[in-house]
Design a protein around this nucleic acid. Structure first.
Ligand SMILES: [Mn+2]
Ligand SMILES: [Mn+2]
Ligand SMILES: [Zn+2]
Ligand SMILES: [Zn+2]
Lengths: 143, 143
DNA sequence: AAGCAGTTTAGAACAATTCTAAATTGTGCG
DNA sequence: CGCACAATTTAGAATTGTTCTAAACTGCTT
C-alpha cells in the first residue's frame, strides 16, 4: 500500500483539483503534500513530522518547501494553525469550528467536535479590536 | 521614580520575603526580578522583555539568569506560563484562574477575570489521562 | 575570615523557523 | 512540440528563542 502519488493517480488528481481551486500551481511537491494531508481523515502535523513522512514515502521535498507549503495552504484556507506549545507550530487539516485536547507528555492533539464545548461570557474586545477566534485547549496529562 | 532596589528598601524587603517563603535564596538578581514582577499590578512578561527592563533599570543580569529565574518562580508557584504564540513564551504573575485576550498584532496579553468566561461540556479526558487545565484564548485583531 | 553549596554568567550549543540567491520546473505560446 | 519566463524549489546560511556547560562568584553558616 504505497503512498506515492505516481502509484495513486486518483489521489493525485484530487490533490491537483484542490490546489487549482486554491489558486496554487500543482507542483510535484505540493501534490504529494496535499495528498498526505487531505487524502485521509483530519490530522495535525508539524512541519518536521510531515517532512519526515513525505520523505519516507519516496518523494524529494525540502524542509523549506514544507514550511512554504504549509503557510500557503493556511493562507488559502486549506489548513489552520494551532498554538499549544511554545516551541513548535502545529497545522490542522480540520479548519471548521472545533477544539483540542493537548497531550502534554506526547505532544499530540486530539480533536473535540465543535458542538461539544460551549464558551459563554466572552467579553467584548477592547476598543478598536475585534474577536478573531476563541480557542479552547484542554491540556491533559498522565493520570 | 527609580526602579532600582537599592533605592527602594521596602520593595527589596518584600521581594526577599517572597523569595524566602518560596525557598529561593534571595540573590541580587532574584530580588530585582521579583521586585519588577510583583511590586505592581499583575503582568505578562517575556524573558527578553523582562531582561531589557531590568537591565535598563541598572542591575546587571544575564539573559540566562532571567530564564532560570522565570522557571524557578514558575516551579515555586509564583508565576505561570501562558502559551499563545508558537514563537515566544510568556509568563504571568497572575497564577489564579483567569483567561486571556491575545492581541495578535501587538503580541500583548490582557487578563479576563476568572469568573467572566464559562466553559461547559468539556469531555472526559482520554483513558489514562486527566485534565490538567482548560485554557481559553480570545484572539483579537484590529477591527 | 574561610569554606562551600548555590547561583550567575559568557559563550557555545540547540531547535524551530525564515531568508537568500541560484537552480529547476510548470505553463502558455508560437 | 519546444522556448521563454514567471513561479517554485532548494541548499545552506541566517535568525530567533531557549537551553546547556563549565568556570567564576556570592550568600550563608560557622
Ligand atoms: Mn502581584
Ligand atoms: Mn524557536
Ligand atoms: Zn484539530
Ligand atoms: Zn494573565
Amino acid at each position: 500500500m504505497g503512498k506515492l502519488m505516481r502509484e495513486n493517480p486518483d489521489m493525485a488528481a484530487l490533490a491537483m483539483e484542490k490546489l487549482r481551486a486554491a489558486g496554487l500551481r500543482p507542483t510535484r511537491q505540493r501534490i504529494e503534500l496535499a495528498a498526505h494531508l487531505f487524502a485521509g481523515p483530519d490530522r495535525h502535523v508539524t512541519a518536521e513530522s510531515l517532512h519526515d513522512e513525505v520523505v519516507v514515502s519516496g518523494i524529494k521535498v525540502s524542509l523549506a518547501t514544507v514550511y512554504n507549503t504549509l503557510h500557503q495552504f493556511t493562507e488559502a484556507g486549506l489548513l489552520r494553525q494551532v498554538v499549544v506549545d511554545a516551541a513548535r507550530g502545529y497545522f490542522d487539516t480540520n479548519t471548521g469550528n472545533h477544539q483540542h485536547f493537548f497531550l502534554e507528555d506526547e505532544g499530540t492533539l486530539i480533536d473535540i467536535p465543535g458542538d461539544t464545548i460551549t464558551v459563554a461570557g466572552v467579553p467584548t474586545a477592547p476598543p478598536g479590536l475585534c474577536v478573531d477566534r476563541v480557542d479552547v485547549v484542554v491540556r491533559v496529562k498522565r493520570a
